[in-house]
Amino acid sequence: MPHEQLLLRRLRGRPSAGLVFSYVFIIIVAAFCLFPFLWMVIGATNVSKDVSMGKLSLGMALFDNFANLNKLVNLPLVFRNTAFVTLVGTFFTLLVASMAGYGFEMYRNRHRERLYAFLLLTMMIPFAAVMIPLFRIFAKVQLLNSFIAVILPSVASVIVIFYFRQSTKSFSRELVEAARIDGLSELQAFFYIYVPSMKSTYAAAAIIVFMSYWNSFLWPLIVLQTNDKKLLTLAISSLSSSYTPDFGVIMLFIILATSPTLVIFFAMQRQFVAGMLGAGK
């Protein structure tokens, strides 16, 4: 059958059995993925007892839950703290990791390749193993209970460096060559040529890094000490461990805590997908 005819038939014809199957499959998968979110929303509107009994309809307790939550947690403070750590952390992580990824890929040399392999190895070490020495470092320089201590150890994230190096493979070197000829320094070439042309790579990395700071728990728990430094995850954790946990309040808190990441993701998803495309090669 000639090619054009085949295409035409496909365009005109009814959806094939395969397509119907695809819809059924993808709708089931999506329902599974979304269901817990739906349940979280329902839970936030119910009183604790109904949540633990698995009540599946909306309740009337949303405002009461919010009032209780507000009494138990200083919401503006924890949101401000978490936003601060996340934004500053994401900014520096992207800066340091993209420079490193760019450096490793554009200026290859034997020593750096070895170091790079070594860096990849460090990813395999469980965090629990380095926690004590890390804690001692920050105690020694008197930075316990500071946001700097929360951010610094994750700034040089090896996985993000790896991601940027992979993405740089698809970056055309000629652009930098041209910039050099135009008299730009190497740093200028990085900031004026590389960064703007890798926007979607940055967007994808930004989402992942944002998420990891926003949701970080174990390390902040260890280094932060006072109430004025409390982060969202720490607040949720302390709320959900009480002798008489209020599940409606916890559900509401989880929704509030998750929504900023969702908003960022929705706002940047186009760039995100495009950025993953660059690294996926």
């Binding site: 728990l221 000490q225 720490l234 954790s237 461990s241």
Partner: peptide, 17 residues
């Protein structure tokens, strides 16, 4: 006073470290 509220496991963990 500064009364810091944490999960029980979190208090134990912080104290130990």
């Amino acid at each position: 006073f500064e009364i810091v509220d944490m999960a029980k496991a979190d208090v134990e963990q912080k104290l130990l470290i």
